[in-house]
Simulated scan of single mutants.
Amino acid sequence: MPGIVKHAAIIAWLLGVSFVVNGTPAFAEQPAIEEILSVLGMNKAQINELAQRQPIVYDLSEGRSDEIAAGIAWYLPVPLAKVAGQLRTDDPNLLDVDVTAHGILMTHGKADALSPVVLPSEEIEALLDAEPGGQFNLSSDEIENFRTLKRIVNDTPDEAIRDAIGQRYRAMLFDRFEAYRRDGTYAIAPYARDNNQSVKPSVELDQAANASVILARYAPALHKAWINYPATLPPRTNEVFQWVEKNVQNRPAFILRHHVNHDWNGGELVLTREFYASHSYNASQWVTGCLAYRDGTVVFQQVRSYADQLSGVATDVRHLIGRKLLKNKMLKSFERLCGVLRHCH
C-alpha cells in the first residue's frame, strides 16, 4: 500500500492545476450556465451547491486504465473582468505553486530558450546509464544518444561531461518541442519501457482531446483544431509554448506545455496540453473555462492525466487514492485563487 500511495501522490502532485484565462466582460447569447455545468458532468445537487459559493470537485469518466481524471468548478462573487484580469498571464507560477522555473519556447530561439535547465550531478549520472524503464521518459533513440555520448566523453573531465549531457538534454527537449509544433501529437516519440514495451503519449493525448464533451458541443472548431493540431486555430485564439520545472520526489521534472486561449462568445476557454514530462507521468490535458454567472464568475477545469503507475496490480486503489489527492490539490489551488482576488469570502 505505501508504494501505491507514493505513485498516486506523484501523479496528483504533478498535475499542476494552472488557471490562465483571458476574459471579456460579457457572454453573448450563451447557453444557460446550468446546461454547461451539466455537460461538464455535474449533477443538479452539485450545481445547487455551487450557487452557494462552494467549490465543487467531482469525478470524470476515465477511458483507460492508466488515466486519472477529475473536474472542479466554483462560483466567485467577483466580476468576470476582474477575475480574468488577475488570471490573464502566461506565467505558470500564478496558481501552479509547484513550479520552480519556467520559460517560453519559440522555434527561432532554438535550445537557448532552455538554458536555465540545469541537471544536478545525480541526474546526469543516471542519464549516462539510462535504460528503458520508468526512471526517465525517453525514447529508444534518445537512450541510444545518451549512451553514445557517454562513450565519447568517457575520458573527459567531469565538468565537460556535465556540460555535454546538459546540452544534449536541452537539445532533446527542444527537438520534442519542434516535432510537436510541426506535426502535433502524431510526432510525440514513445517512451521506451522494460521488456521491449513502450508508452505512447500521442495516443493518450488524442484520447483526452476526443473525450472533451464541452469542446465538442460548444467550441467545435477549436475542438477540431485541437485534435488535428497543427491545423489552423480558429479566430480569436492565441497559443504559447512553455517549459516548466518542478521538484518532484527530490528530482527535477521538466515539462513541455502547449497553451491555447480562445475567446468563447464573451467567456474564455483555455486548453493546456502537457505533451512531455521527464518522469513520473506521461502526459496530461487541462480544459479551463471562465463565464459570467449571476453577480460574479464561474470558473471550471477538467484534468486528464496518464501514468504507467495507475495500471497493474491494485489499479482501483491507485485510482481512488490518486483522485482524492488530485481533488485536494484543486481545492488548494482554489484557495490560492481566492487569496489573489481577496474578495472571495
Results as ranks from 00 to 15, higher is better:
13 W>H: 14
13 W>A: 12
14 L>F: 01
14 L>C: 12
15 L>V: 11
15 L>N: 14
15 L>K: 06
16 G>T: 04
16 G>L: 01
16 G>P: 00
17 V>C: 06
18 S>G: 07
18 S>V: 08
19 F>I: 15
19 F>N: 00
20 V>C: 08
21 V>T: 10
21 V>L: 15
21 V>Y: 02
21 V>R: 04
21 V>Q: 06
22 N>M: 08
22 N>H: 11
22 N>Q: 12
23 G>C: 11
23 G>L: 09
24 T>N: 11
24 T>K: 09
25 P>C: 11
25 P>T: 06
26 A>R: 11
26 A>E: 12
27 F>V: 12
27 F>C: 15
27 F>M: 11
28 A>E: 12
29 E>C: 08
29 E>K: 09
30 Q>N: 13
30 Q>S: 14
30 Q>Y: 09
31 P>M: 06
32 A>C: 05
32 A>M: 10
33 I>M: 15
33 I>T: 14
33 I>L: 15
34 E>L: 04
34 E>G: 07
34 E>N: 10
35 E>F: 10
35 E>Y: 05
35 E>H: 10
35 E>W: 04
36 I>D: 01
36 I>H: 00
37 L>F: 01
38 S>L: 10
38 S>Y: 05
39 V>K: 06
39 V>L: 10
40 L>N: 13
40 L>C: 10
41 G>P: 04
41 G>D: 00
42 M>Y: 10
43 N>D: 15
44 K>G: 01
46 Q>L: 01
46 Q>G: 03
46 Q>N: 03
47 I>E: 03
47 I>D: 02
48 N>G: 13
48 N>L: 11
48 N>Y: 05
49 E>I: 00
49 E>P: 01
50 L>S: 05
50 L>N: 01
50 L>T: 01
